[in-house]
Every structure is written in structure tokens, then in C-alpha cells.
Design a protein around this nucleic acid. Structure first.
Lengths: 129, 129
DNA sequence: GTTTTTGCAAAGGTTTTGCATCATT
DNA sequence: AATGATGCAAAACCTTTGCAAAAAC
């Protein structure tokens, strides 16, 4: 465990409710500390390999990373207003059933739901004409 | 409609059951014909804009394109063995309900199911010890 | 003849790699 | 000393853009 890696983990903990891109991480590094972009890439790959963070491709195809809080497979609700993400449980049977209907044997799946969280719905209403 | 664009559309029709990347398209262009990579990018963007093809990010985060056969929103079953894709209907209520449980207002979602098609399951069994 | 498409070259952005240096054990 | 982490530079990739030539209408 190096100090740089610790800084990155702290960033993930602090922002455990959003996807952080490499650029995000780079921008969030505290003043006075310099971490090379290459180092961030390597550290994040390392964290992902060790299961501390998980990756997902965001709305526009960019890659984001977020702290893994659970060993259980789950999906994400992503607020397109504020970027907040909420983990939601997965119901594996559902996907297996769907796949079986087409004679497929399901191995894994990707599910992401985008929308507006409660707070952003209100903001949205206020800004509407 | 130009001859180059026609060639690309023909490729999409011929391989309507797989995701084609830009590189795939480039490789599939008939012998004797040369189409610049830039042209492929631009043509595919054009086809997507006009709703003839749709894009999706594959298993490993790469972008693939496939012919759009339906105006209805749907999802994909993707065989990790042979690459075959099968479109499956979407049940929008399901996602809205899930989102509502967390006080989210669903706007859109991404669902992709990976597995083995019937044929590849058999191959898989044969090759197993 | 006007508009659109094409190829080429170049640039932009993101991610990876090689290598020498530095830190940690 | 040995291993792993870091910074720097460069490369590899993928995608986009500018511009002049070619093709389509």
C-alpha cells in the first residue's frame, strides 16, 4: 500500500455514490499532490483486479469506476441529473428465464437503468415552464 | 446512395445477426473494393442517424453496429460462442417499477444478456472433458 | 453546376508499454 | 538485494476533422 494508492482509495470512498473516470480521479487529487495519469490507470486496474472497485461504461460510452460495497452481483440506477448511483439487487432467475425462452444458456448480463433521482425530479419540475 | 454506402448496407444485411465493429466492416469489404476507414465511420454514423442501424457496446466495451429490424425498443441476447445476437422484447413497466421503488423516474436503460446459444451449448459439451 | 461523398493526411483523445528511477520489504 | 510502484516519454488505438478531388444528383 503506497500513499498514492491510498489517496485514490480515499477518493473512491469519498465519492462512493458516483462513477469516477480516470479524468475525474485526476482532477480530484488533492492540491499539492501530483499523480501521473499512467499511475492512476495502473492503480485503478490493480484495484479492479483485486475486487475493490468495479467498472461500468456510462451513458455515453465512457468508462467509470466505483467502489465495490458488496460481493453480490447487482445493478445500478444512475441519475442523469446529478450522477448519483444507487445499487439495486439482481434477480438472476429473471435473466435465466428470459434466455431459456430463446434456448440460450445465460452466463452473465449487463443492466443499467438511467433516470432522475427524487431531488433532480424536483429541480426538473421547477425549471420547466 | 453511393456504391460504397450500398456495400456497407449489404454487409449489415448479410450479417444482420451480429454486431459489426468498424474494423469488422473494414475486413468484410469485398476483394477489389477499397473503402477508407474514415468513409466507413462517416457512413455508419449516417446510417445510425437515419435509424438503419443501431449501436451497442459489446462485452469488452467495444462498439458494434447492427441492422435495425424493428422500430420497437428491444434488448439483445448475445451468444459469447459464435457472436450471434437475438433481439428480445423489452418490458418497460418492469424498469419503471424497479426505478420507482427507489424514487427514481426512469428515462432509459441498457440491458444485454450474454450466454450460449443452442448450437454453442452442444459444442461446449463436446469439448468438455 | 451544386451538393454530397470520398480519400488522404493530420490531429485529438484515451489507454498502454518500455524503461530508468524510486520506494518499500 | 529484490520486488513492486512511479514518472516520463513514446507508442498504440480509436475516432474525428479539414481540405481538396471525385462522384452523384
Amino acid at each position: 500500500m503506497t500513499s498514492h494508492k491510498k489517496i485514490l482509495i480515499d477518493l473512491f470512498i469519498e465519492h462512493h455514490d458516483r462513477f469516477l473516470s480516470i479524468a475525474d480521479l485526476s482532477a480530484l487529487i488533492p492540491l499539492g499532490v501530483q499523480i501521473d495519469q499512467t499511475t492512476i490507470y495502473r492503480a485503478v486496474q490493480n484495484l479492479e483486479k483485486n475486487g475493490l472497485v468495479e467498472s461500468a461504461s456510462t451513458d455515453k460510452g465512457h468508462t467509470g469506476y466505483v467502489l465495490r460495497h458488496s460481493d453480490h452481483h447487482h445493478h445500478h440506477l444512475i441519475c442523469t441529473g446529478c450522477g448519483q448511483i444507487v445499487s439495486i439487487p439482481c434477480h438472476p432467475d429473471l435473466w435465466q428465464d428470459v434466455a431459456n425462452q430463446y434456448n440460450f444458456q445465460e452466463t452473465h448480463h449487463k443492466v443499467e437503468i438511467y433516470g432522475l433521482c427524487e431531488a433532480c425530479q424536483k429541480i426538473d419540475k421547477h425549471s420547466s415552464p
